[in-house]
Write a protein that binds this DNA or RNA. Structure first.
Lengths: 187, 187
DNA sequence: CTAGGGCTTCGAGCGCGCTCGAACGCAAGC
DNA sequence: GCTTGCGTTCGAGCGCGCTCGAAGCCCTAG
């Protein structure tokens, strides 16, 4: 997913210890930079996704894009803003389906605002949950690293809790993977 | 991915404001609870994944599992510990491919320890990066919620930065989605 | 005049991680 | 004896989100 690069770049630009607040958001592809109209290549470049993906989003009904007299796509500022939003949501894990639903609400007019708000609130909770999951996994990984002597030096008592797969190989290893059963690709 | 449920449960058990430290890890399917041997259903239950998935992992070469005299799988404590580790890594986003590689290192013996450590360190960094990405997305989402009046009340100046898709519908909306092109599933 | 590059549409293909169906075996309970 | 239920193997299928290839058009540079 090339989309990740946008965020990666953003994170790099911000440095690893920036305050990471709403302030930071503004610097993320600031919509003020968006020109009146852009070509598909320019938008692709801006969002760090492929032209293929942009066409795909259009096919999926997420944006409407006009054509010039050669039949080439012309992205206006509104479309670009929408795409900025969409890629951001994709990046945070919102599925295409939900995005399609959200956009249909937008297109349906202002009476759907509260439903849209609900979606956003729910998505916020999803992100929060995911962050907590990852934080836990991070702790587990760091624990495992520690038992490996990542920084604690050699000969750490290896009584594996966060570990599991390999409590510092016992004498009787290696035990070969298993004589060729019908395997799932393992080249 | 039913695997998520393990973590979900764990998070719930811990409560939303727990210290979220290494301590917490111990309570996550504590390997001390693991009996001598288990059936596939029991393991599936323990890890909150399907028996299908367990068989799949075995086919993929991630664990070896013995059979009883009826040909039924018998998971010993070691296998279960390994699976705990594996599901944990899966949950934090490590791809099957990497897991297969890691396990092949484990099976290759103790001279691969440093390479394993490298993998873990890299994975740790991946998780950290992902957490930062999500944190940023979270901020963007919350910003958007705020412009919708999530708690700030009505009529927030809607000069959309974190927003994009829908700056509070203008008079000329709705503009219909686009007259039926060949669309990507949008039931 | 020609070659190259970038765009268009359409539909097919892919990588991932499961998930399921079919056809079968065995054991316990009614 | 037969059903129910849980297990087995094998291979196919699926949902997601792209990703790509083919065939063709148009513009510009050499």
């Amino acid at each position: 997913m090339a989309t990740d690069d946008l965020m990666t770049r953003a994170l790099e630009t911000l440095g690893d210890d920036a305050p990471l607040s709403v302030e930071a958001i503004h610097s993320l592809t600031d919509p003020a930079d968006v020109p009146e109209s852009m070509t598909i290549a320019e938008v692709a470049d801006l969002l760090d996704i492929s032209p293929h993906t942009l066409r795909y989003y259009e096919r999926a009904g997420l944006v409407e894009v006009a054509r010039d007299d050669h039949g080439h796509r012309v992205y206006d500022a509104e479309a670009v803003r929408r795409l900025v939003f969409l890629t951001r949501m994709r990046l945070s894990g919102m599925p295409m389906r939900d995005l399609q639903h959200y956009i249909s609400l937008v297109d349906a007019g202002k009476e759907t605002v509260s439903e849209r708000l609900d979606m956003l609130l729910e998505h916020r909770d999803t992100i929060r949950r995911r962050i907590r999951e990852l934080t836990l996994s991070l702790a587990a990984t760091e624990y495992k690293i520690a038992t490996y002597g990542g920084s604690t030096g050699p000969d750490v008592q290896t009584f594996d809790l966060a570990a599991g797969a390999d409590r510092t190989p016992l004498p009787h290893e290696p035990s070969r993977p298993s004589p060729g059963r019908s395997e799932v690709s393992r080249k």
